[in-house]
Every structure is written in structure tokens, then in C-alpha cells.
Design a protein around this nucleic acid. Structure first.
Length: 544
RNA sequence: GGGCCGGUAGCUCAGCGGCAGAGCAGGGGACUUUUAAUCCCUGUGUCGUGGGUUCGAAUCCCACCCGGCUCACCA
């Protein structure tokens, strides 16, 4: 991801930078909408790494009108639709001051979990009453004709000549989505709260003059955006493709910044979205897409990595459902970590891979070398171990590493194990699942050759006699018996996997068998061997 | 209709003027404690199509085809 560092180099000599983004807290968030904030954070980190004094701002546009009734209780729809989000009561009733606070807080909590810590959150519902927006409101009203011209020219939207760029909050019903300003006399605006201005909310019919300052009115979206740039001195602001399209919101706000507020707009970093399975992300496209599920399965650093690895203007096609994309994401992350730690890695690495790793870390101040060098067991291996009862994953990881895990590595292991379990629950393809076929000998056992069947028969007899109790006991026995019948260990293990799991490979066989009912282990070995008490190998009684 | 992104090996993608690449999957082999481990070997693909520029094009230019997203009301 050299793009962030390139950007930083580009603005290095332009003085302090203010990076900004803002969001309307209209409701729930899906994973894809986190790409913007992650990019925002990476830009801020890259600027700081390049010695640029940087302020990271995040705004909550909570004076925007409530326009989604899905999250309102039915009796609240009529009264609340069209009112500023900050004035709508919290529907969840969990002690937030408003609907906007509730949703914004949930969003902010996600930020923190992803290592995103803006220097300041600002709330438009708090900014307007201070009068800070008044100069911009005045400018917008004075230059209403210019604004109308911009809409016509840039966005091909023709407003009536009486239209003024201001959203007054109706002094009678408190709604902002239903009002229209038709006149401005330099002190006051003429407001009409129309019953049917929009389909989604009802106006009260108010008609009169109000003073539009100090929180009595808000600027419409495109003007508010441009005014924020002026108010906060924003120099960089990434924008999703929904805004950054030609003739779209960003173009309009850019023109407004230049022609109405007379300020050069900030540098845009347009970014693409995250698609699920080549389709637009939504909670309805399958079990795979739900945001909370995704967050359970992908730890924060891998989620950051997912967003930061591709260039911002490349769409991310993520399809975790029934695929190995999540294990691959971990493998790729581990590869970047290994490379950053200076270890030899297979295959190619994109330019700037060290930066990608660094900016994927949760803690901006983390010791990159130590993080990169930390032991991380392979995700797919964990997913396998997680399916075997009685396995001590911590012990296994330690054995693999060859020395005790540090406390950090212990934490990584736990996080990753939880992710693996979540993946198995929600997304994993059938071939990644391991299940003991309890009912009958799996069909895959039919492929066993005579030597393997002999091994299973012998194993059954010996296990019946020795009663191995632990995984180690079983493991030793397996090797012993294999040696006894002159079968290479690899083929011996394959025989066990086919007989019990119906597949050619699996988790450590000794521990697998130790986790089963001893009588069952003995019986199944015998059944799958096709041996009879008479001692001759007959056909294997294969079941479903 | 406008905009953006993509179309390179079975899959995921890198390469973006100089001999078509990697990972994974697949195939073959080695390994007597190996556990989807490790190691070695294995890639003949109209680089979406058609033109053009160039000594040389997957790469630059033009046109087109296909796929996806997005904007065309508000935010």
C-alpha cells in the first residue's frame, strides 16, 4: 500500500494536514462501510509517519433528517420521521440521549475496536447552536442564485428560482426534512413546512419567517459538507464511490466550496466498496454477509488488512461463504508479517507490503518488528485442531513454536482460535469440516488396500488388549502396529482417516482416537478392515 | 445515459514498454513419530476483441464487447 505513503509525500511540504470524514448516524452499519474509516486512519498514520502534523476529525451529521422508518416503533413514525436525528428519542431505550447518539456510539465503538482514534469527534447538533455555522449559512443564502446555478450546471438539478439552500427546522413541528425556504431578506428566512414536500415524512403546514441562525436551521448536505471544510480547515477527505462519481455529491460540494465559500476543496481519495460475492453488500445476501458475524470471524488486524491491501480505487470482492477466502486472508496476513520480520516468504509481495502490515496493526505505536516476528499458527491448522475434542491447542501451538508463547502470542492464539471456531460455524466449506462418521463405515474406506486393512485389524486387536488411554498412547500404538505390518506411517494414518472421517487426511490421529469411545474405536477399526474372525479379508461393509 | 473498477493459468491475483509470473489447487516424488508438517519436481495461457503507436505492447493510444458497482431525489 504505497498509496498512503505516496499521498503523504505529496503533501509533505504543504504544512499541517486536517483529515476529515463524517457520517449520518441513520442506522446500522455493515462491514463494508468500515473501509472509509480504515483508509482515513491509514492516511493519518502515513502522514504522521512522514513527519506531517496531522489532525484526524470525524463528524457526526446528526442534524440530518430521520428518513428510515425501519428502526422506529410504528407509533413513532408519524411524529419522528423528518425530524433531526439528534432530536429523535433513542428507540433502543438504553440510556442514549437520542437516536443519533445511540447509533453514532455504536459506530464509534467499532472504530475503537479497529484501532481508529480520531483526535476529535464533532457533532453538528452541537456545532450549529454555537453559531459557528452562521457565517456559512449567511453566505449560502446571499449566494442562493450561485448555488442554484451549481446544482443546474454540475448535477443537472433544476431548483425553482425561489429555492434557497437551507433546511430550516420547523418551529412548530420540529421537522427539518419537510421544510423549504423560499425567501431571504438578510435577517430572516421565509419557511414553509409542506405536508407533502417529501414522501417519507409529513409537514405540519407552518408558514412564516424565522431567524435561521444559532441552530434554528441547518445547511443542506452538499453545503454543510463544504462548510465543514472551511470551518475545520480540512485538507484531505476520502470519499466513497457513491459520492465521488462525476456529477455526484463530491463534485457539487467541490463547486460550492470554490464558488460559494471561496476555498479550494480538500484532496479527495476516492475509494471503492466491499462487495460480497461480486454483489453489492447487504444483510440479505446470505448468511455470509451479516456484519456482526463477519466481525466475529475476522479479528481487527485482519479486517484492517483486508481493507488496506488493495488500492482504494479497487473494489474488494469478498466472498467468505463456503470458500477458503478467510483462511487465505490470514495466510496472506501471516506472509506479510513474515516478510516484515525479514523472513523468507514464498511468492511475490506487492510493493509497500511492509507499510500494509504496519498500518494493519491495531496499535499505531506498536513495535512493528516484534509484532511481525510474533508466532502465529496457521489459521487452517487451528480450524482443524478446533474440531478435535480434547486437544490442548495451547500445547500444540507451543510444540510447533518450539518454546513457550509470549503473553502477546497467547492472546493472538486465543483470538485466532475463536476466529477459527466462528469460521467453522458460519462460513467454512464442507471439505474443511471434520466429523467422525459414527453411524457406519464411510464409503471412502472402500479404497483401502489389503495392507491398510490388515493394519486396521491389527490396530483393533491391539487397542482392545492394551486399552490405550491417551493420545500419546494411541499415537505410539499406531506407529508400533504400522511397523509390525510393514506399512509406511503415512498410509497407516490415511487408513485411520478414511475409516473414521471419510477423508484421506485429518488431525493428529492418536488424539482423534483418544477422544472417541474406546469400544467404538476398536469396533470401527475392525469393521473398516473387513477382517472376519476367520482371519481372511473380505469386502468392507461400507455404509453411508 | 454519465462515472469508476475489473476482464492475465482451474481459483485468487501480481506484473503496467524489454524472455508471460506467484500463491493456492492439481499431478509426480522424497521423508520410519510426519499429523491439510517439511522438502524437491511439475504451468502450451487467443494476457476480453479489433485497430494503432513502437525495434519491441499484457503494459501506451483509439474503438468496441463482457461483468460489477455507482450516480442521475435526498443525505
Amino acid at each position: 500500500m504505497d498509496w498512503a505513503d505516496e499521498l503523504a509525500t505529496r503533501v509533505r511540504d504543504s504544512g499541517p494536514q486536517v483529515v476529515n470524514d463524517s457520517k449520518t448516524p441513520s442506522g446500522t452499519v455493515h462491514v463494508g462501510s468500515l473501509r472509509g474509516p480504515v483508509i482515513l486512519d491509514a492516511i493519518a498514520r502515513a502522514l504522521r509517519a512522514n513527519g506531517v502534523q496531522t489532525t484526524l476529525l470525524y463528524g457526526v451529521d446528526d442534524l440530518d433528517p430521520m428518513d428510515a422508518q425501519a428502526l422506529l416503533t410504528p407509533d413513532a413514525v408519524g411524529h419522528e420521521m423528518g425530524r433531526p436525528l439528534a432530536h429523535v428519542p433513542d428507540q433502543a431505550g438504553d440510556c442514549h440521549a437520542s437516536y443519533a447518539r445511540h447509533h453514532a456510539q455504536r459506530f464509534i465503538d467499532i472504530f475503537a475496536g479497529l484501532g481508529i482514534h480520531p483526535d476529535r469527534y464533532y457533532w453538528m447538533s452541537e456545532i450549529y447552536p454555537t453559531g459557528a455555522m452562521d457565517p456559512y449559512i449567511r453566505l449560502a443564502l446571499d449566494r442562493a442564485a450561485v448555488v442554484r446555478d451549481i446544482y443546474r450546471r454540475v448535477a443537472n438539478v433544476q431548483h425553482p428560482d425561489t429555492w434557497h439552500p437551507l433546511g430550516a427546522i420547523c418551529p412548530n413541528c420540529g421537522k427539518v426534512g419537510t421544510t423549504i425556504v423560499t425567501e431571504w431578506n438578510g435577517h430572516q428566512v421565509h419557511v414553509e413546512c409542506r405536508e407533502r414536500l417529501v414522501e417519507w415524512a409529513r409537514g405540519c403546514g407552518f408558514d412564516g419567517w424565522i431567524t435561521p441562525f444559532g441552530g434554528a436551521a441547518k445547511l443542506p448536505w452538499n453545503l454543510e459538507w463544504a462548510a465543514q471544510w472551511s470551518l475545520f480547515g480540512v485538507t484531505i477527505e476520502p470519499g466513497g464511490k457513491d459520492l465521488s462519481t462525476a456529477g455526484g455529491s463530491r463534485d457539487r460540494s467541490d463547486a460550492i466550496a470554490r464558488e460559494v465559500f471561496e476555498r479550494e476543496p480538500p484532496l479527495n481519495v476516492p475509494y471503492e466498496f466491499l462487495n460480497i460475492g461480486g454483489r453489492k453488500m447487504s444483510t440479505s445476501n446470505g448468511r455470509g454477509a451479516a456484519a456482526h458475524t463477519m466481525a466475529e470471524v475476522i479479528p481487527p488486524e485482519q479486517l484492517r488488512f483486508l481493507f488496506l491491501r488493495p488500492k482504494p480505487n479497487h473494489a474488494i470482492d469478498f466472498d467468505p461463504d463456503g470458500t477458503d477466502q478467510i483462511p487465505r486472508l490470514f495466510d496472506e496476513f501471516d506472509k506479510f508479517a513474515a516478510a516484515t520480520a525479514g523472513r523468507e516468504v514464498k511468492g511475490d509481495l506487492p510493493p509497500g507490503h511492509e507499510a500494509t502490515f504496519r498500518y494493519s496493526l491495531l496499535d499505531p505505536a506498536a513495535d512493528v518488528a516484534s509484532e511481525a516476528g510474533a508466532f502465529r499458527p496457521a489459521f487452517s491448522h487451528l480450524a482443524l485442531l478446533a474440531q478435535v475434542p480434547g486437544v490442548d491447542i495451547g500445547q500444540r501451538a507451543e510444540a510447533e513454536k518450539g518454546e513457550p508463547l509470549t503473553s502477546r502470542e497467547q492472546a493472538l492464539l486465543e483470538e485466532r482460535t475463536a476466529a477459527a471456531r466462528g469460521w467453522l460455524d458460519a462460513y467454512a466449506p464442507e471439505r474443511a469440516r471434520v466429523a467422525v462418521h459414527e453411524e457406519a463405515v464411510p464409503p471412502e474406506a472402500a479404497d483401502l488396500d489389503v495392507a491398510q486393512r490388515r493394519f486396521l485389524a491389527e490396530l483393533s486387536v491391539r487397542a482392545g488388549a492394551d486399552a490405550p488411554a491417551s493420545g500419546d498412547d494411541w499415537q505410539t500404538l499406531i506407529f508400533e502396529v504400522a511397523r509390525g505390518v510393514d506399512l509406511p506411517p503415512r498410509r497407516a494414518f490415511e487408513a485411520i482417516y478414511r475409516a473414521f472421517l471419510g477423508r484421506a487426511n485429518g488431525p493428529r490421529a492418536g488424539w482423534l482416537l483418544a477422544s472417541l469411545e474406546p469400544a467404538f474405536a476398536v469396533r470401527r477399526s475392525w469393521e473398516a478392515s473387513g477382517w472376519t474372525t476367520a482371519g481372511s479379508p473380505g469386502p468392507i461393509p461400507v455404509g453411508g
